[in-house]
Design a binder for these strands. Structure first.
Lengths: 209, 209
DNA sequence: CCATCCCTACCTACTAGATGGTAGACTGCA
DNA sequence: TGCAGTCTACCATCTAGTAGGTAGGGATGG
């Protein structure tokens, strides 16, 4: 009936389910989970409202699928970064780039948005949002640990606490950037974040190597 | 007719308007602007829904009054901090305490919440939210400037950029704390924030003196 | 001193439109 | 033939907002 059934004959329906997810994801990132309706998705996808229920029986089902896909895609992006970059600072820059890309599309991180809506969210969505942040922090902890032990980073506190700090700063930067109507806000925060993690000693070109 | 008329005979009505604002503020901080209704406020205040329209003709009017009052109260709190504390670090700790107090009540900063809802907000509310962040940053800039020139603080970047950074980190910390369901998250972020702004040199008791 | 008037605060009862969701039928492909 | 995908038509409930009326207090004026 709906989304979890991936291995099936045609691909037309998978495409529809994905188009629904795409439209809903954008709506959540821009307006929030409570401020979009099946009617909005219907309009965006070009399908009747009732047909949406065929793919995602309830709004909760849609929401859960949304967060799960978002987490999966994000994790894949993180794995990509880790395999393409070696230096901790470069990895962090790429990580920040993920946020920048989202904000440039005038969206907010979907899980940041859902974190705001958390009090009104169905429990399974809530849990999945919590996992998203935990996954982000544990990836960052790994990157930062490697970076500090190689002397590429310097700061007060543990890698884990710094990882939590980075997630918070970036989520907050997106939020405030929206609130202020100034997307550049994120760049300012990001560069200060990196600046304060660089080792202090010889000149400022202490980048990789 | 409604709120702007403060100087009048009785005080009963002022109290009602304030009770409405209190209830609505809490609802916004917990659920967001789109996820509460006049019916919710009606229940919380113990007044008929239609009577709410007597005090705040539309939801937009209510929203604008809400943000304006929030800003005013926040500014007063900041002025209080400035007059009661001299050392920059103490002022920052007190500033962070403001956020902690809100989160302890299981709420989010109201303007942080509204920043998430920004795409669906009536324009006057949007503007007022932007001013809230600007006011916060300019207060912090002043505090940080004084602190750096007295050698109480040390970090990479300008006081203004650090001020923006602090607002973002704290707003983000509240958001992630909610998303993770771990209020302590804010404390971790806050202490790391302070730790990375302390002057590096002699011991860690470089506080005020 | 009292009748009138006006205003604020509140009420009951209603509306139009949106919301998430359902029932049941049609269509085209495997 | 069966079934996934779509449709039209519908529903109960909730939404912000309106209409119109009542109670009571304070001022005004005769």
């Amino acid at each position: 009936m709906w989304y979890s059934r991936i291995p099936m004959g045609a691909k037309r329906d998978i495409k529809t389910a994905d188009r629904i997810l795409d439209a809903a994801e954008k709506l959540v990132q821009v307006r929030g989970f409570n401020a979009f309706s099946y009617a909005d998705v219907s309009k965006a996808v070009g399908i009747q409202k009732a047909s949406l229920h065929h793919h995602f029986a309830t709004k909760t089902d849609l929401g859960v699928a949304l967060v799960e896909r978002y987490r999966r895609v994000f994790l894949e992006a993180l794995a990509g970064i880790e395999s393409e970059e070696d230096a901790a600072v470069d990895r962090l820059e790429r990580y920040i780039g993920l946020y920048r890309t989202v904000l440039r599309k005038k969206r907010m991180c979907m899980c940041g948005m859902l974190a705001a809506d958390v009090a009104t969210l169905p429990t399974p969505m809530r849990d999945s949002v919590a996992v998203f942040f935990a996954e982000n922090e544990s990836w960052l902890t790994r990157v930062i640990s490697a970076g500090t032990s190689r002397g590429e980073l310097h700061f007060a506190g543990t890698p884990a606490s710094m990882a939590a700090f980075i997630v918070s700063s970036l989520e907050g930067a997106m939020l405030v950037a929206r609130g202020r109507g100034e997307p550049a806000h994120l760049d300012d925060v990001a560069s200060l974040l990196i600046a304060n993690m660089r080792p202090p000693t010889p000149s400022r070109s202490a980048k990789a190597r």
